[in-house]
């Protein structure tokens, strides 16, 4: 009997994903292939660095009780991660189908989870609605820690909030309400997050063309 059986199912931006089973558990195999558009030296450095930090960050996040896939194995030489495969819909898809009152509890809960991550100095690095999976009704799981890192820097945490805010704003007109709901959840488990939010506004004000009426209070 083969230990692992898998077939290719998707090509993400970072890696090719295979789905299969490992000792009867559903798994995803994330294979980071070299990118043709990057200089090989930059590419190798980045792929190795991200593989290591993804494994480390996922493990730490799971330890503190954040809903993330479990890590089954790492193959440093071949740039492969073997992780638990979660079933569910992307938050991005749910946002197009669910009414706003159904989204509220999801965003509060997501705020809790990110607050928990940040209070433990875990940074996601690419916190968008494309990287949140809704498994049960309002239970978000956080996936794809490819740009994740361990850091106590205010700026890194603020970048997480800003990335989330920006993509939210890019796809959903009611984004300010949803972001505030998220923020409520975030601050309730991570009161120091007040400073993170202040820093996020500071970073945002460095960007180009923030119209006066569009500034966050």
């Amino acid at each position: 009997m083969k230990l692992i059986q898998a077939e290719k199912i998707a090509k993400g931006a970072e890696a090719v994903i295979f789905k299969g089973t490992f000792l009867q558990s559903p798994i995803a195999i994330k294979h980071r292939l070299p990118k043709s558009y990057r200089h090989p030296d930059i590419d190798n450095r980045i792929r190795l660095h991200r593989l290591r930090s993804e494994a480390k960050v996922m493990t730490n996040a799971r330890k503190i009780g954040v809903s993330v896939p479990s890590l089954f194995g790492v193959d440093i030489e071949d740039h492969i991660l073997i992780i638990e495969s979660l079933k569910g819909k992307l938050l991005f898809e749910e946002m197009n189908s669910l009414p706003i009152d159904k989204l509220d509890p999801i965003f509060v809960n997501l705020g809790h989870q990110i607050g928990l991550l940040h209070s433990n100095d875990i940074i996601h690095g690419d916190l968008t609605v494309f990287n949140v999976l809704i498994q049960l009704e309002d239970k978000p799981s956080i996936i794809d820690f490819g740009l994740g890192k361990i850091s106590n820097e205010l700026e890194a945490k603020a970048d997480d909030l800003l990335t989330f805010y920006s993509t939210l704003k890019a796809i959903q007109p009611a984004s300010n309400i949803l972001f505030n709901t998220f923020l409520e959840g975030y601050l309730s488990v991570y009161p120091e997050g007040k400073n993170t939010y202040e820093q996020m506004k500071k970073i945002r004000s460095r960007a180009r063309y923030i119209a006066r009426e569009d500034r966050l209070e």
Binding site: K11, G12, A13, E14, K35, H39, I42, D43, T128, F130
Partner: peptide, 14 residues
């Protein structure tokens, strides 16, 4: 350019 490329690939994939 690698950074622009990676961001573009991520946006394309999303």
């Amino acid at each position: 350019f690698a950074i622009l490329a990676e961001a573009t690939e991520r946006a394309l994939s999303c």
